[in-house]
């Protein structure tokens, strides 16, 4: 078994001293789809967002234990949380479109975080939109308001906007919950395709969906984790050194550890 890309060791999460998740030990491997499955309020979204430190700004949030991503403790002091979030992308339950054009929505993040890519923005937009099978639908109206797209298209655009930053890990927080069955199916197929490129952690409370798309299902119930492997639908050949190719291993999320791609 290869080294895990995400590893949680004795993680306890609390809000204002109220424990939400307790003593979680979990290892997730690269280029797999792992679903976090559980009822509403079980703490699966909290766990997901802890992987990119999106809970930090919530008052009363506290985390004990170690969360390692690519063998680096992301809650250690000195970690560049912004670089972490660029490498660990998050797609929300409801697609969030800014009242701007499709193109501007696509480059919203990279315009600031990867200014050195400026000359390649158009190509990268096209490539990312193709990856989520949205290019043919929007290629002639990139300057139109993104809010005019359908909900399913908006969610694919949100994924493309995250992918354009080339994250190593993609976290998806119930991404199909606001979609119609057809868009839901399309997004599930897309997830399976994307898993060839990056590691996916997908939150859902839909048991059937979890088993349709996952390499691995992690059950979360009343703040506790029950882990179960599932027969893989893909040939997973994770190689941690390949994933971190071109990046300084010891300080993966620190500014000095990042090399321009």
């Amino acid at each position: 078994m290869n080294a895990p890309i995400i590893e949680l060791k004795g993680v306890c999460i609390a809000y204002n001293q109220r424990t939400v998740l307790e003593r979680i030990n979990l290892s997730l491997h690269s280029k797999e789809i792992t679903t976090l499955l559980g009822p509403s309020g079980s703490g699966k979204s909290t766990l997901l967002k802890s992987l990119c430190r999106m809970n930090d700004h919530i008052k009363g949030f506290s985390l004990e234990g170690t969360v390692e991503i690519l063998e680096e403790d992301i809650y250690a002091s000195g970690v560049d949380v912004y670089e972490l979030r660029r490498s660990v992308g998050l797609v929300f339950q409801k697609p969030v479109m800014f009242p701007r054009s499709i193109y501007e929505n696509m480059v919203l993040g990279v315009k600031r975080t990867r200014p050195e890519w400026r000359s390649q923005f158009s190509d990268r937009v096209e490539q990312s939109l193709k990856e989520v099978h949205l290019w043919d639908e929007v290629k002639d109206r990139l300057q139109e308001h993104a809010t005019r797209l359908s909900q399913g298209q908006q969610q694919r655009l949100a994924i493309a906007r995250t992918l354009i930053g080339e994250p190593q890990i993609l976290l998806m927080d119930e991404p199909t919950s606001s979609l119609d069955p057809k868009s839901k199916e399309a997004l599930e197929s897309l997830a399976i395709e994307l898993a060839k490129k990056c590691t996916l952690v997908w939150v859902t409370h839909d048991v059937e969906q979890a088993h349709r798309i996952s390499d691995r299902v992690v059950y979360i119930l009343e703040g506790k984790v029950f882990d179960r492997e599932k027969a893989s639908h893909t040939t997973v050949s994770p190689d941690i050194q390949q994933i971190s190719k071109g990046r300084g291993k010891r300080s993966f999320f620190s500014r000095q550890g990042i090399e321009g791609s």
Binding site: R85, V96, R112, T113
Partner: peptide, 20 residues
């Protein structure tokens, strides 16, 4: 959600101010 989306894309507070 706007703020969270910007944060999730890795924007620093200064970048979040300018972009969002």
């Amino acid at each position: 959600s706007y703020r969270e989306t910007g944060m999730a894309l890795g924007l620093t507070p200064e970048q979040l101010i300018r972009s969002v």
